[in-house]
Design a protein around this nucleic acid. Structure first.
Ligand SMILES: [Mn+2]
Ligand SMILES: [Mn+2]
Ligand SMILES: [Zn+2]
Ligand SMILES: [Zn+2]
Lengths: 137, 137
DNA sequence: AATGTAAATGCAATAAAGTTGCGTTTGCGC
DNA sequence: GCGCAAACGCAACTTTATTGCATTTACATT
């Protein structure tokens, strides 16, 4: 199924801005920061980019994660998530060299035993260190 | 050992601002946001508060964590960490009701098996859900 | 106890990140 | 093609964090 259809299926219009963004996000398993996408699409207004990302997240097309430096990042949901409820529980890896954020789709979040009284909704596992290219250098 | 001494042992001066902050952080196992502390010490300049927290973190007196909403929070290191290298690998719980962030000092971070090529420095495990008081209500 | 000095503070300015309002444009169902 | 809700662009504003600099203060030394 092509990108335009994927967007329309979520009740959103397939605009050029949206197509550009979703194409980049789909090109790998990385989570992108607003600033990075802004640099990539210099002709797109920054507010539009904020709105595209928010709309995508609410539609369940992308998920939001905050990296070790507190930077908000967005990555494509591989299995489409129903609405804003992201069943996305995989592990993320944040490189301290290049600052790339990798979605490790195949690594499930470990489940953790926590004290009584706490009601768990979900777990975020964020691993940091150095990616392959950065450990080589 | 008293708070002033603890601060001085890290090569910092035991000022009133610092004593106030460290006293609050030591009063429980919660991680505080800048805004919360600012409200608590209305007479302290906000820049001073930023600097107090940064200095404490670099000294290894507190550790920084980012909550599920991207808000930066600080909590006292129970076992003093050597310099800025925080050996602090416990799990944190973030309540979606009251937004409190609990340091679960006794819950060690699970270790996760990740793909080859990645060099792991550390793991951040952030659990979110509802705390005892918030699940009751 | 007084003094010297590096460290810490307060204030103003600046920067970065995100939000809101509103008039104009455009995707797309008809 | 037409109509209209949705999306966009631009300006203004807010929140969070950083930087520079003059003044004050903790504390080691006399
Ligand atoms: Mn992901
Ligand atoms: Mn903690
Ligand atoms: Zn890297
Ligand atoms: Zn709560």
């Amino acid at each position: 199924m092509d990108l335009s259809t994927q967007i329309r299926e979520k009740g959103l219009k397939a605009t050029p801005s949206r197509l550009n963004v979703i194409q980049v996000l789909g090109s790998n398993h990385l989570a992108y920061a607003h600033a990075e996408l802004e640099a990539l699409f210099s002709d797109m207004d920054r507010v539009t980019l904020y709105r595209v990302l928010n709309d995508f997240e609410e539609a369940g097309l992308v998920h939001k994660i905050i990296d070790v430096d507190g930077v908000t990042r967005f990555a494509l949901c591989k299995h489409s998530c129903p609405g804003a409820h992201h069943a996305d529980e995989h592990v993320h890896f944040n490189c301290r060299g290049c600052h790339k954020m990798f979605c490790l789709e195949n690594v499930p979040a470990p489940n953790v035993k926590i004290p009584l009284g706490f009601k768990v909704s979900g777990v975020q596992t964020l691993i940091y260190g150095y990616c392959k290219s950065c450990s080589a250098a």
